[in-house]
Amino acid sequence: MFPHERSLVARLKDQPFALIGINSDGKLEELKPVLEKEQITWRSFWNGPEGTAGPISTAWGVTGWPTIYVLDPKGTIRYIGVRGEAMDEAVDTLLAELKVSK
């Protein structure tokens, strides 16, 4: 999962695009070396020490990981649960929409 996200972020680095994580690892100190090793450069909210029972995932009713939402520039949910190629396609479609509307 990290390699795909890494390549998506790299490919779209000059585009109006952001990958925002909500990280549900309860122990930050154990996560830090992973960020470096996997070159996870994108920004994440931290879900807190309760891990998968943290406040953000609870407020969003998340019960499975990963859970993906794709939002357009207005913040509207446009796709849910897209992974791999489907995620790329969703993002590309929304970026193309944005170009047309400008």
């Binding site: 952001a18 990280n23 549900s24 998340v62 993906i68 939002l71």
Partner: peptide, 14 residues
């Protein structure tokens, strides 16, 4: 991040 296309990814290292 309004104005950008955003992928929200609930993730964990496990």
């Amino acid at each position: 991040y309004r104005g950008k296309v955003v992928v929200l990814d609930f993730w964990g290292n496990w």
